[in-house]
């Protein structure tokens, strides 16, 4: 869980940085997208990096989900008879409680997101437009519900990451000393917040017309 999660977090950081290039204009953004396809060229065939990334990501997502499902199944097996009274959380931690259904929402979002931005299937501009145009088109104010879905999903991802990151540190045994523990806990929150803000910045700016 921790290892696959770490892979996905690294990807998200890269993805976010790429997204932010939209503020540098269509040229920069499209050039970056193009570079992703041709990196290493001509020594390597086109899409080498992308293909490797895609394979790693698919594997990471699959393993991450598999780990989640087996944890959930183990949990169900460990408690065959449920409590009659609603179990009241004593630990607080809203993020913690959203991990499982949050994960499902995120998966649904990723599917939509791929259809929208990668394949263009559900994008008004279609798959042949430049990435910049697809992005601008995707978040037009008229399609506010797409933007809203995106925002909700980002918040979910933020929550997921906040607990996920911290949980990974704990699972790897890095949180033994109070000082380190507090630093890592804060670090997890900061990284999650940065990611949410970074991802949300572009669509919001498109929707309010700052980026056209």
């Amino acid at each position: 869980m921790a290892v696959t999660g770490a892979v996905l977090v690294l990807f998200l950081l890269g993805h976010m940085l790429g997204n932010l290039k939209i503020f540098l204009g269509a040229g920069s953004f499209n050039h970056y997208a193009d570079w992703l396809r041709t990196v290493g060229s001509p020594a390597l065939p086109d899409r080498t990096l992308l293909t490797i990334t895609e394979i790693v990501l698919v594997l990471a997502v699959a393993l991450h989900m598999w780990a989640a499902v087996s944890l959930a199944r183990r949990a169900a097996k460990a408690r065959p008879v449920k409590y009659a009274a609603k179990r009241r959380s004593q630990a607080g931690g809203y993020a913690t409680r959203t991990m499982r259904y949050g994960g499902v929402i995120i998966v649904l979002f990723v599917i939509w997101h791929l259809l929208d931005m990668t394949f263009g299937t559900v994008n008004p501009e279609g798959g042949d437009a430049t990435p910049y145009d697809r992005m601008i088109a995707g978040f037009q104010p008229g399609r506010w519900w797409v933007g809203l879905f995106y925002l909700v999903a980002m918040v979910m991802i933020g929550l997921h990451l906040r607990h996920g990151l911290w949980s990974a540190f704990q699972s790897l045994g890095l949180t033994r000393r109070p000082r380190v523990r507090n630093a890592l806990r804060a670090g997890a929150a900061v990284v999650s917040a940065v990611l949410v803000v970074g991802f949300v910045a572009a669509p919001v700016c498109i929707m309010i017309g700052v980026v056209k």
Binding site: L71, K77, G93, T96, M99, H163, Q170
Partner: peptide, 10 residues
Amino acid sequence: GFGGCTNTGE
């Protein structure tokens, strides 16, 4: 047969 830890802190 105990379940796995997901660091919920409960």
